[in-house]
Nucleic acid binder design. Structure first.
Length: 312
DNA sequence: GCGTCCAGGTCTACC
DNA sequence: GGTAGACCTGGACGC
């Protein structure tokens, strides 16, 4: 769908919880530097372009306001009440504004070495408008440099995404991705051996064989165990132990460390004077932190990012 | 300039 | 169940 002439605009403010920190949430992990997200360091705004109902593409420019998140919405279509509500809900989901962290704060408050996490405000993992987008981006992070991840995601958005205007596009829908060929994903998107994984996931979602968008609510269901949730995630080809752990955090479960080479290196620097240690050593180090260990681990590894407004 | 290594891993075959 | 090898790409590094 071509939305070349954005005509409708709407300005509003989203209320935020008391523990919310706008920039620390945006820089909670690397997602903010992957399109369609965009950090404008000159204007101090955060942009996202999203697919909404009936294939409409809406752009949101967000900034830190006195009363919450100031939002400027643009669309080529009339921003009627249902579209407006969906845009607000999508932004709230990306920032996970409805997630209650009071239990986490009580937990870290008992631990002097982690008490700073209560005031820090980077505990809400930024996530994409859809679980599908989070999964495809996670697959794009595996076994490659961050530079290649950026190339893959940029190509997906530029070549398969829904257009908002000349330069801004939303992430491809499962239906759009399901329609491309494996060779296109390999050669044009540079996804390499990940191509069949991306394609299979898109086709399963597009054909209603995988109900991926319910996973956010499933993750908050206390009756679903983490091993069961991992089993569901691992059923998606291309999602291995690291990717499942990363997805758990994005979904809202924190009892997995999601070890990759970057966090391992950070652990070595912080806790073993740069000396390489076994994964089991890292696991046992954080085991006493129970269901919050994945979150505490990540916040500790990335604490240095937040000494500046734009860490990367 | 060229070759090699490895990076924010996963899958499959084989034992 | 554990492990070795293959897999795309591109940047860093040594020569």
């Amino acid at each position: 769908m071509m939305n070349n002439k954005p005509s409708a605009k709407k300005v509003l403010t989203l209320a935020v919880p008391a523990d919310f920190n706008f920039w620390h949430t945006i820089y909670s992990h690397g997602w903010c530097s992957l399109r369609p997200f965009f950090v404008d360091k000159e204007r101090h705004t955060f942009e996202l372009t999203m697919n909404l109902q009936h294939n409409r593409v809406v752009r949101a420019v967000l900034s830190e306001g006195n009363e919450g998140i100031d939002v400027e919405l643009s669309s080529s279509d009339r921003l009627n009440r249902p579209l407006l509500d969906q845009a607000k809900q999508t932004i709230a989901d990306c920032f996970r504004l409805s997630e209650d962290f009071s239990e986490f704060f009580k937990f870290v408050n008992r631990l002097p070495e982690y008490r700073w996490m209560r005031r820090h405000g980077s505990h809400r993992f930024l996530r994409a408008p859809t679980v599908f987008e989070d999964v495809i981006k996670t697959i794009a992070t595996t076994n490659c440099t961050w530079a290649l991840t950026t190339v893959i995601v940029n190509n997906l958005v530029d070549k398969v995404g829904n257009r908002f205007d000349e330069t801004r596009l939303a992430f491809p829908t499962p239906e759009a991705l399901a329609d491309v060929s494996e060779s296109f994903l390999r050669k044009e998107i540079k996804a390499g051996y990940r191509a069949p994984y991306i394609l299979e996931c898109a086709r399963r979602v597009a054909n209603n064989k995988l109900d991926i968008e319910t996973l956010r609510s499933v993750a908050h269901d206390p009756n679903v165990s983490t091993p069961d949730l991992i089993k569901i995630l691992r059923s998606i080809k291309g999602i291995g132990p690291y990717s499942a752990g990363n997805m758990l955090k994005v979904l809202g479960r924190y009892d997995d460390l999601a070890l990759d080479s970057w966090v391992r290196q950070r652990f070595y620097e912080i806790h073993s004077k740069g000396r390489v240690v076994k994964d089991s050593r890292i696991e046992s180090f954080y085991k006493p932190l129970g269901k919050w260990r994945g979150l505490i681990f990540w916040l500790e590894m990335t604490r240095h990012w937040h000494t500046q407004k734009f860490p990367f």
